[in-house]
């Protein structure tokens, strides 16, 4: 990893371009809030750019086809998950202030889960986009080559209906 991180992050590059820059703990919600609020004020009041470097860590795998334990230890992942989770840190701060409780947290979890599940169910019931959508939005208007290709494709589908997904409106 040393070779990638030989430089000291990106905050120094902002300075190199004459941009006021700040490095902030990206896993600290309050720190982020303050940094962005101040940066926004400068940007609006003084009409100049600000660079914010928010230091953080990707706890999950890169994608569904990635197994990140191949290149980092499970201990490392666990450490960031438990010790530095921005959600947990913010939660603890709220609880200490007396503004949030375990029961509220549990209730929120149940509600959020329900909401996500409902959204997935709805999305799955949604009809697939019609075939024509494949050709639109390449340009503002369909050019002749795409018109020809759409016609040709529809003929192919008629000849070989079993070659193509059945759940798409043709």
């Amino acid at each position: 990893m040393v070779c990638i991180w030989a430089g000291d992050g990106i905050v120094v590059k902002g300075q190199a371009y004459g941009i006021s820059s700040i490095r902030v703990d990206g896993n600290d919600a309050l720190a982020i809030y303050n940094a962005v609020r101040n940066a926004r004020q400068i940007a609006i009041n003084e009409q100049r750019p600000i660079l914010i470097e928010a230091m953080t860590y990707r706890v999950s795998h890169h994608s569904t086809s990635d197994d990140s334990t191949k290149y980092r230890s499970t201990d490392e992942i666990e450490h960031w998950k438990t010790m530095h989770s921005p959600v947990t840190r913010f939660l603890k701060w709220l609880e200490r202030k007396g503004w949030w409780s375990d029961s509220e947290e549990a209730k929120l979890h149940v509600e959020a889960k329900k909401e996500v599940k409902q959204a997935i169910d709805e999305a799955e019931r949604e009809e697939m986009p019609p075939l024509g959508d494949m050709f639109t939005d390449v340009y503002d208007e369909l050019p002749s080559n795409l018109m020809e290709q759409e016609i040709s494709l529809r003929e192919t589908i008629q000849r070989h209906p079993n070659d193509f997904p059945k759940n798409m409106p043709i």
Partner: peptide, 23 residues
Amino acid sequence: GLDTPFPHVFEPFYMPTKNKILD
């Protein structure tokens, strides 16, 4: 391939399939 960006759900339609070649 067709003259569109490489599509996601439309990939089976975009591809130069065996039967397109056979035809």
